[in-house]
Design a protein around this nucleic acid. Structure first.
Lengths: 348, 348
DNA sequence: ATGAAAGCGCTAACAG
DNA sequence: CTGTTAGCGCTTTCAT
């Protein structure tokens, strides 16, 4: 009545559980005829391996633990997609935990993953997390740990991130090439690394193209629609007003767009706008938003690949951890196409 | 060197593994002093339970298997969020599988979940799936199975869905109450139940308010942006053209909106538009899209709750499976606010 | 190429 | 209240 085990198969074939186990695992020292018959009987009896037993004995679970702030955020949903895809292709399952940006939940998640004997952990650190003891515990147990998006240099583990500096540089340069002359930037809190990097990219792009850096044209918002709107209003009311805005991410850009639309002297196509993140809505608003794509699914895939590679060559544990920096991709849409003043329209 | 086990704790305390196990599991017949000391030593030795061993013995894994088409679709990301939240609160972990809408992947996912001895499975069926043998296998093994969104009556298992009929009724009625007189509908393939239900809701709402049903005003698209655009163009070119459109879901509505904007005789606010799904972009497009919210995170929570309830009262296995039908919520935004002809503006 | 025996770490039944 | 014993189902030496 109860579930078929390898002993049932062994009995049916007058052999032993060991042979059945080896046959099913394609062990080299089993004749192909035996493998064949074992597989046939296994199928007949509808046998399914008991992974708990297998992993208890072998120490391997073929489970990959994934820790993210929230599956509800499209960025992370996309990354999970990429991770699970690669994991599955290599026979791994994904055990998922959300932290809700809380250190406590994150530590609890790590604890559960350790109890589950996962073969590796892929994580994006919670905003609240400032202590890394839980991650150090993972390292101590020699369980492969890979970070993505929000990496921590201090932990000294492999990571996949995108090049925020370069993304911002591309965005700014695109506006320059479109012919905009006074390009403003709405940034975010500078203690968060990615926002600081994006500001650097903005500044360096301007410098490289011999534009002056004007402190008035740089504002620091709180990374939200409302904040983007307020910052943009402030910029558009300057005596020497900007003719383009690079926003630190798409929601900020969305707020800025609202402000732009309500600006009396603005004509469509006059004020350029670029965001960052390629959020789901960005292609569908009016005008559609030029932005920087972060290659989210790819990020997940690369993270999973990093894990697979680590497994392969467990030898070089002392090697410096690999860091993959993904190239951001400029998505040119309507919001940054300069349409008047006879400026030359640069094709991208 | 290697990981702490209950035997290590037992040795330290001159007691036995059984006692330690019971103490850690808060077994009633252990004195509270013993529990206390055991817990202290466990903490000191940094003990973490080995779940594989525990579940091999006890038969329970505290793992919930979740099968979805793709984590990249925001709908499913949101549902996962709800499921994991409830699961975690009850000590369960979530093992995630994506089907990519393929029957093969779905069957493979079920197989892996069975091998992993999950305590229950929550699934949304792949579009391609037409045979249910894999799900029947789950039932046969008496593993609780809960479906969401895309339920299959034939399987006779608990499910959480939203009331598509009611959602469509609400959407249509809202347009009627706004004062629109000729309300069209862009539907989808009728062999897919949800689209058929939405069509029924549309028709019944019109009937209930003594509007005529005009076959010309009902088109059948392919549920995409492009298809929505084409269908809307066709509708807007009718001799007796509609003054409002209810689209079967938000992407269709988005395409329809493009067509509306390009209609020469249209003035903003003249043609009403309602979508369905409350996609992430719907609040941010111009005009913002009135739509039907499907309570996605709630759907996940309810599905997880259904599982938890099943676990509690394993007695009534013969009872008819519970079906939870969530109420859709009308999200009124700009696209459906009637602004001219002195119609009374109905507040919702 | 296969079999015998042991044991992964835990929990549960039975004693006391 | 605690100890003894056994065994969940599998893999892995070690033998042959």
């Amino acid at each position: 009545m109860s579930r078929t085990t390898i002993h049932d198969i062994a009995k049916e074939l007058n052999t032993t559980a060991a042979t059945v186990s080896r046959a099913l695992n394609d062990h080299p020292s089993i004749s192909s005829t035996t493998k064949e018959t074992v597989r046939r009987v296994a199928q007949k009896l509808n046998y399914q391996q008991n992974r708990a037993a297998s992993s208890l004995r072998s120490g391997k679970t073929f489970v990959l633990g994934v820790i993210i702030p929230s599956a509800e955020i499209s960025f992370f949903g996309s990354v999970i997609h990429g991770i699970e895809k690669v994991a599955k292709s290599q026979g791994y399952s994904v055990l998922l935990f959300q932290t809700n940006e809380s250190y406590e939940d994150e530590a609890q998640g790590i604890r559960t993953l350790l109890q589950s004997n996962v073969d590796g952990i892929i994580a994006s650190i919670a905003k609240e997390t400032t202590r890394y003891d839980h991650f150090l515990e993972v390292k101590k147990r020699k369980i492969p740990l890979i970070l993505f998006d929000r990496a921590i240099d201090e932990l000294d583990v492999p990571a996949v991130v995108i090049d925020d500096y370069k993304g911002a540089y591309l965005a700014t340069e695109h506006l320059i090439l479109q012919g905009y002359r006074r390009i403003a930037h709405i940034s975010g809190p500078q203690h968060i690394q990615i926002f600081h990097e994006r500001l650097r990219g903005y500044v360096d792009a301007l410098k490289a193209h011999h534009h002056k850096i004007d402190g008035d044209l740089i504002t620091y918002g709180k990374v939200s629609i409302d904040s983007g709107r307020l910052c943009a209003e402030q910029l558009l009311n300057l005596p020497k007003r900007p003719d383009a805005i690079f926003a630190v991410e798409d929601f900020t850009a969305l707020g800025a767009l609202q402000a732009i639309k309500e600006t009396p002297w603005n004509k469509p196509g006059q004020i350029g706008l670029v965001g960052f993140a390629n959020e789901a809505f960005s292609a569908y608003i009016t005008p559609s938003l030029t932005t920087i794509d972060q290659q989210t699914a790819r990020m997940g895939q690369e993270a999973a690949n990093l894990f697979m590679n680590l497994k392969q060559e467990e030898k070089n544990l002392a090697d410096p951890p690999q860091k993959i920096i993904l190239d951001p991709v400029l998505m040119v849409r309507q919001s940054s196409i300069r349409s008047k003043n006879g400026s030359k329209r640069k094709k991208q």
